[in-house]
Write a protein that binds this DNA or RNA. Structure first.
Lengths: 144, 144
DNA sequence: TAGCTTCTATAAGCGCCTGATATAAATGCC
DNA sequence: GGCATTTATATCAGGCGCTTATAGAAGCTA
């Protein structure tokens, strides 16, 4: 099993589908959409963005991002700022409450994951830890 | 690293969050919601259900399930049937097109995963395969 | 300055969710 | 048997989140 050959793709897909469902359930229920969280994370990681840049990075249309930013602004999670060099542009910045929300979510997720890992057998835990770098590289393969 | 001790939960959470985002992007774009797919899978796996049973299993409200079943029915993916012993009940059954959609999705997912795995280094692929049973058990820890 | 392009906002519409409420069928109690 | 209650589903009002099409303001260029 631990060879480098190609596995049964169907079995792989079933395992990953189950993991995916589990990951969805692991997601903190904070009444905020996946796109909203992802957008906040982008702002945290890469700094302020033009609204249209955000739309591209998050894979939604510009009107969708306009609406999302409006909701984020209304909820105090992000701010609309102007670009002094171009009056058309809206620069979106992460607000403090947005930063707080992200760390709260991360903490909650870490907490739940930690509990789950603690409930696993030692060798299962070791296998997952050993696979983490590989899983990171797997995730790297689809960044769009 | 490959010991059985508890890892840094934050690092774990970050890795899993990235995996989660990737898994979302791995999801075939079939213009059908996650809940819809999950509902079809439930019908496939566990057979016909009352509408209200489905709502509970999928974690949505009964009105949400009423609407979802209406859309599934309209799209030919599921059918509303009557219960001869109780005139109030709506029994939801998977239609052939629903079954077809599920297998098509599975195939597409397997295909994409297979490509991704093929792009990994041999030892990365081996590490992930070795961790699969452990990941399955991790998923088992989450309630239905 | 006139006209094109770029950036954001608005409008209309659908999917998908919620809570509150309506309706029909089954059940329980007298 | 008749009537109130419970149960199963449907409907309604409203909000989020997405789409396409379009409007409007600002910048650019000839």
């Amino acid at each position: 099993m631990a060879n480098g050959g190609n596995p049964d793709p169907t079995q792989l897909a079933i395992s990953f589908e189950r993991l995916f469902i589990s990951a969805v359930r692991l997601n903190p229920r904070t009444d905020i959409s996946l796109t909203a969280v992802s957008t906040l994370r982008t702002l945290e990681r890469d700094g302020p963005h033009r609204l249209s840049e955000l739309a591209v990075k998050e894979g939604v249309t510009q009107p969708a991002m306009t609406q999302l930013v409006s909701r984020l602004e209304r909820d105090g999670l992000a701010r609309r700022c102007t670009d002094p060099t171009d009056g058309r542009v809206v620069v979106v910045r992460l607000a403090d409450a947005g930063r707080d929300l992200l760390s709260a979510r991360r903490e909650a997720r870490a907490q739940r994951l930690s509990e789950l890992m603690g409930a696993l057998a030692d060798d299962d835990r070791a296998a997952i830890l050993a696979a983490l770098p590989a899983l990171d590289r797997l995730a790297d393969l689809l960044p769009p």
